[in-house]
Nucleic acid binder design. Structure first.
Length: 503
DNA sequence: CTGGGGAGGGGGCCC
DNA sequence: AGGGCCCCCTCCCCA
């Protein structure tokens, strides 16, 4: 900060020729010009200091290569660093901090860092995707905008070239259209470096292009999956309780292109089915049967296919495939390491790329990411509700469908097998003591609630479900009955349409 | 409208 | 690394 103060002093006193004119701008240079000149000079100074390693209070490790930088500059340039540094600064900002990345290469980060310190973005056809991907990760909307512009201009050029080619072809061989447009298979053929000037220069402002194509229909709002596309807006911080449903594609080149080309950004939607879905969750199709699971034990979430998930019935097939592809990038994301101190005993933590949350273990981050992806790999076969964790499903099944609590739901007294019974209500099962059973009269066969003597429940369509008696229930573990990790693909959902009509 | 309880979701951490 | 347990929090329902 002293440094900045000094520089400001210099600038106002001599270097900018403003002596005696600090408050009254001369006629030849407007305040904005002075400011612009001052800013660029300041940036040059900072860049010089960075290259000389002067006053650098921040280190960024990218695949083993160390970059020195100034915390202030990174903070001001990147939403990611803003989060990182603000969370790291809580304990006292004096200590050097750093970050480590494995999601992009040092070369790409160098391009970005150069942009931060110089305002020049070295975009080439062979690096634009990676730069955009990294910028997306680092939440640098300007860079993303420039990359988009670069890609767009490449597409335009390519499309134009092809159009010309087609015209020439048609002149030579008049024939029906080949069916594919230039944009459809545009290649980034421009080999020259594309330099974007940041700041108040005459560079094109491509940010407006983020709001284009409205012709794309918004994705089904009930789809709980990442479908929003890259959210390039300078996002307000989202709590982990408010799942982002941000496309994971922002962290991967191909996906980024994909999203870019579809232009779904800002297409709305995507906000439903977020957060706690008491109202929002859409039950899976009626259960197949309370049958032994296809596979017992712990499904590994890494093998879990897709977040395409739950209630994906409304989504189109290609969309689900895209979601699968996007989800395949998860390991890359998981590899992100967050803050560390540069002391001898670094406290490594894994930082969520979507929120400020950090965890000690990779596995915990993986688990945490589900709240952003909306993935719910564990469906309850009894009611179709889906859960993010096996333990939640088990707990749900035990409390809701097994009536495992030996407590009378009405009077809250402890009940035993003799002093109470399990009552079915829809797919729910709970216990009532004999007194409460008599009071409510639900012991009577044919009443609204089934008695335990005729244990059964009905699904949404009124189909009766056989239930085992309590002894069997006591023996059966919830996991044995219903725990099953499923593929959240459409096929899987279709398969689940099978109804268990018994008797 | 409010408070209590149930259900679900998420984080930390141990095995 | 995954499973599981414990704890806490939030939301929703109901009295």
């Amino acid at each position: 900060m002293d440094m900045l103060t000094d520089m400001r002093g210099k600038g106002s006193s001599g270097e900018h020729g403003l002596q005696g004119q600090q408050r009254v701008p001369c006629s030849s240079s407007s305040p904005s010009e002075i400011s612009s000149s001052h800013q660029s000079r300041l940036l040059q100074q900072l860049d010089q200091q960075r290259r000389q390693g002067l006053f650098c209070d921040c280190s960024v490790l990218v695949e083993g290569r160390l970059f020195q930088a100034h915390r202030n500059v990174l903070f001001a340039s990147s939403g990611y660093f803003r989060m990182l540094l603000s969370s790291g600064a809580q304990g006292g900002g004096a200590q050097p901090v750093g970050a480590s990345f494995e999601v992009f290469s040092p070369e790409i980060f160098s391009v970005i860092l150069d942009f931060v310190y110089s305002g020049r973005l070295e975009l080439r056809s062979d690096n634009v995707i990676e730069v955009m991907s990294a910028a997306s990760y680092l939440q640098m909307t300007d860079v993303i905008g420039y990359c988009k512009g670069f890609i767009r201009s490449s597409l335009d050029i390519s499309a134009k070239d092809e159009k010309e080619d087609e015209e020439q072809q048609q002149q030579r061989y008049p024939a029906p259209s080949s069916g594919h447009t230039g944009a459809a298979h545009a290649s980034f053929s421009c080999a020259t470096s594309w330099r974007v000037q940041n700041g108040s220069g005459a560079q094109p402002d491509y940010r407006h292009q983020q709001q284009q194509p409205k012709d794309q229909p918004p994705p089904p709002s009930k789809h709980p999956l990442p479908q929003e596309g890259l959210d390039f807006r300078p996002g307000k911080p989202r709590s982990s309780r408010q799942p982002l449903h941000t496309s994971l594609g922002g962290l991967e080149g191909d996906a980024a292109v994909l999203q870019f080309s579809t232009g779904t950004e800002g297409g709305g939607g995507g906000t439903a089915a977020t957060g706690r879905k008491k109202k929002g969750w859409t039950p899976a199709p009626p259960p197949a049967a309370l049958s032994p699971p296809d596979h017992k034990g712990a499904p590994s979430s890494s093998s879990s296919p897709s977040p395409s998930a739950a209630s994906s019935s409304s989504s189109s097939k290609p969309k689900a495939d895209k979601a699968d592809e996007l989800y395949a990038t998860l390991p890359t994301i998981v590899g992100v390491v967050g803050l560390f101190n540069q002391d001898e005993c670094p406290s490594m933590r894994f930082k969520c790329p979507f929120c400020t949350h950090t965890v000690k273990r990779k596995a915990d981050l993986k688990r945490h990411l589900r709240c952003h992806t909306g993935e719910r790999p564990y469906p309850c076969e009894a009611c179709g509700k889906r859960f993010t964790r096996l333990e939640h499903l088990r707990s749900h099944f035990q409390t809701i469908h097994q009536a495992q609590k030996l407590i009378c739901r009405k009077c809250k007294r402890h009940v035993t097998e003799l002093s109470g019974r399990v009552v079915c209500e829809g797919t729910r099962r709970y216990r009532l003591c004999n007194d409460c059973l008599l009071e409510t009269g639900c012991d009577t066969p044919g009443s609204a609630n089934h008695s335990a003597a005729e244990p059964c429940f009905e699904d949404d369509e009124g189909l009766s479900w056989p239930m085992t008696d309590e002894d069997e229930l006591a023996e059966d573990s919830g996991a044995d009955l219903i725990i099953q990790e499923v593929e959240d693909s459409d096929e899987e959902m279709d398969r689940k349409e099978v109804k268990p009509v018994i008797g």
